[in-house]
Each structure stands twice: as structure tokens, then as C-alpha cells.
Design a protein around this nucleic acid. Structure first.
Lengths: 208, 208
DNA sequence: CAAAAACTTGACTGATTGGTCAAAATGTAG
DNA sequence: CTACATTTTGACCAATCAGTCAAGTTTTTG
């Protein structure tokens, strides 16, 4: 992490990156209201006024982290290939999302928290950019169905289902870990989770 | 709502109920840290000191609402009948959860928020009561699979999948509404959502 | 290497908010 | 109707926290 973000100078690039990394951890754990600038500053290893030198308001940090995160999570969705094999494309996408849930639960949690509380910072984005992208991919799925290469299911709800299921493992991790039998709670646990999810999902949408 | 809760006196019963209803609305919308006692008191139509007369600490209100909510959501899960038809039992359960997501999104959101932030107030409950209940139902599903009445899938992950998918419609409502085509955003929208979810899910788990 | 620009921070401020308290108002039992 | 218990509230307090400011320190530039 710690990717330099819009570096005007060398130091700016480094420090903005450090701050955003710290902010992701803090905001995802405690939510916007539950996080303090002091916490983020401490985690970033700098004083509060120094942090405010880079991001004048708490909200600026939050929105910046959120937007960066959103882009990350949308990339694999964009990459769904209309010319690929339907089942294979959806398997690939689902596995990728499961892997992201395992590797970066914090960013999924940050996003979940934002939506859960009414998406005050990104409602516009959802209604415009995201909606357009989803409509696009829904059309692709519709075409696959028309060609008889996928069972007839509502594309939007199929997309929701993949999102819900995969992100569940990041967002509800505490619950998953509390419930799963001890022997399943290994590092490779995500593989078997992906297996189970894919079995049900793919059998559910294969053409009949 | 406004069910009298452990009424010592008539007034206590009424007012505790009113407070808990108000608290559910406020906490689910803003989270624990994001909600203020003043907000809850205002929504309950009483002064802050009066509210604190019934629940001495903010956390007391929160925990009480959370526990009440949890019980509500677990009841239909408990009711899954080992002697019923597997596919029919899971269909019934899924539809019920979809309906609850539509009718009481606030309580689902309250719970989601708690888990999302590490379940500080109910971790013990998850590890003991909930785990035991889930293990029980997982055993039922396992038996169904052994009898060839259900496709072989990991029971725990199947349960997670149903939870994730159904609660998604309550917890991510803002996103769902932002993305769904306008013509699908009718009151009956939940029926078509349930349809789509059930189609995929049930086809995914029917014995092959 | 000197001057300017960029960066850093201790000390502070005002607003918010969880919780207290003592006095008043209301309800209830005999 | 009276005495007692319960309920209600305005005024207040202490802690927390976002954001400011002025005075420093470090880095860059010519």
C-alpha cells in the first residue's frame, strides 16, 4: 500500500499515502463518526495538525479513501468479458471477489458501512456511474441468457447475489469465524468457502 | 411495536417500549457512536434525563434493542423442520427472511452494523448460542444430503449464503434502489427479488 | 549557502455530548 | 385527602474532539 496519491512534492506523495492507509484501517473499524482524527494521526505516526495540513477536514480523508477503495472493487467487475464463456466469466469474477474479501476485508467493510448508513458520501456515484456500469453488465448477462448459455434469471439480482455472498465473508467475518467449526478456520478456509459458493451459484445458473 | 418490556409498573412498561422503538430507528441509521441520547429522547418524545431514568447508560439501551432484535431474526431459523421437505423448508425460510428484510430493514441494519464493527456487544452470544444453533441446523442439512434429498454442499456455507443474500436487500437497500431499473422499484419489488434469489439458490441445491 | 517554500507541532478553542443532580410534578395506596 | 413512591425535567459538569494558529524546523532552489 502507501501508494503516492497526486504527489505535488515527494513528501506530499509519501505522507498522503501513509495517511490514507491509516485512515482505511481506522474508518473501516469504527465508522466515520466512531473514528477520530487523533487515532488516524497516531496510526500514521504524525501530529494531528500535520495530518490536517494534508487533508483540511475529516471528511476529506474519508471521501478520498472511499473513492480509492470503490475503484479497486469495481475493476474486476468491469473486466467481465462479454465475449468470454458465461459460466467461466462469472466463476472468475466470483473467485476474484472472494480473494479480495480475504486479502482486503477493511476496504469491503468501509464500503459496507457507508452503504449501511445511507451512502451519504457516494449516493450520487451509485445512481450515476455505478448504475450505468451495472446496467451494462446486466445487458451482457441478458444476452447470454438469450443465447441459451445461462439459465433465465434476473441479471440485476444475480449480480446482487454475487456481491452479497462474496462480501459477506469480509463484512461479517467476525460472525463467520465465530460460527464455523474450528477445523474449517484454517488459512485455506477461503478456498473451501469459494468452492461452496461456486457450487451452488454455478449450478443455479447453468442452462437447463 | 412498543411492546411492554419487563414492566414493573404500567408506566415503565409503556415508556421502555417507546424508548426501544425510538432507539432501534436511531441506532440502525447512525450506528452506536453516531447516535446521541438526545436524538433517541427526542424521537421518544421525552427529556434526556427521563430516558436515562429508564436506561442509566447509552449502552444499556443499545444492548437491550440488539438482543430483542436478534431473537426476532433467529426464530424462523429455529423453525426449520428436520422432518419437512428439504427444498421446501429452505424455500420457506428464504422467503420469510426476504419478507423480514422488507418489513424491518432497521433491525437487520442494526445487527449488520454490530457485526461489521467486530460485534463488541454480542461476540459471546455468537460463539456460544448462535454457533450451537447453526451447528444443529447444519447437521439437519447434512442428513438431508446423506439421504440424497439435497445436492452435496457445505451446510455452513449454504446457511451463510442464504443469510448474505436475504439480508443484502435490507442492509444495502440504498445501493439496491440506486441501481435497480426504475420500473423494478415498485412495492412488489421484493417478490421479484425473492423469485430471482430462489430460482438460483434452489436450482443450485436440488439433488442432481 | 542563503533565502524561500514546504512541512511540522504544542497549545489552544468552541461545540458536542454522555451523564448528574436536586427540585418539581404526577401518580397511587390507605 | 394525605403521605409516600414514582416519574419528569431544567440546569449543569466534565470529557472528547474537530479544527485553528503562530511559531518553529526541514527541505528545496537558485
Amino acid at each position: 500500500m502507501a501508494v503516492s496519491t497526486n504527489k505535488r512534492t515527494r513528501i506530499q506523495g509519501i505522507n498522503r499515502g501513509i495517511i490514507l492507509d491509516a485512515a482505511l484501517e481506522v474508518f473501516s473499524a469504527y465508522g466515520f463518526r466512531g473514528s477520530t482524527i487523533d487515532q488516524i494521526a497516531a496510526k500514521a505516526g504524525m501530529s494531528k495538525p500535520n495530518l490536517l495540513y494534508y487533508f483540511p477536514r475529516k471528511e476529506d480523508i474519508y471521501v478520498t479513501v472511499l473513492e480509492k477503495t470503490l475503484e479497486d472493487w469495481l475493476t474486476p467487475f468491469r473486466d467481465i468479458d462479454p465475449d468470454g464463456d458465461p459460466v467461466e466469466e462469472l466463476r472468475k469474477y466470483t473467485i476474484l471477489k472472494m480473494k479480495m474479501s480475504a486479502a482486503q476485508p477493511a476496504s469491503s467493510q468501509l464500503f459496507a458501512n457507508e452503504i449501511l448508513h445511507g451512502a451519504p458520501a457516494i449516493q450520487e456515484f451509485l445512481k450515476t456511474n455505478l448504475k450505468q456500469l451495472v446496467d451494462e453488465k446486466a445487458a451482457v448477462i441478458k444476452a447470454w441468457i438469450a443465447d441459451g448459455r445461462l439459465a433465465p434469471v434476473d441479471p440485476h439480482h444475480l449480480i446482487f447475489m454475487i456481491w452479497a455472498t462474496t462480501q459477506h465473508y469480509a463484512d461479517f467475518d467476525v460472525q463467520v469465524q465465530a460460527i464455523l467449526p474450528e477445523e474449517s478456520r484454517q488459512p485455506e478456509f477461503f478456498d473451501s468457502a469459494a468452492d461452496a459458493v461456486l457450487t451452488i451459484l454455478l449450478n443455479g445458473i447453468k442452462p437447463r
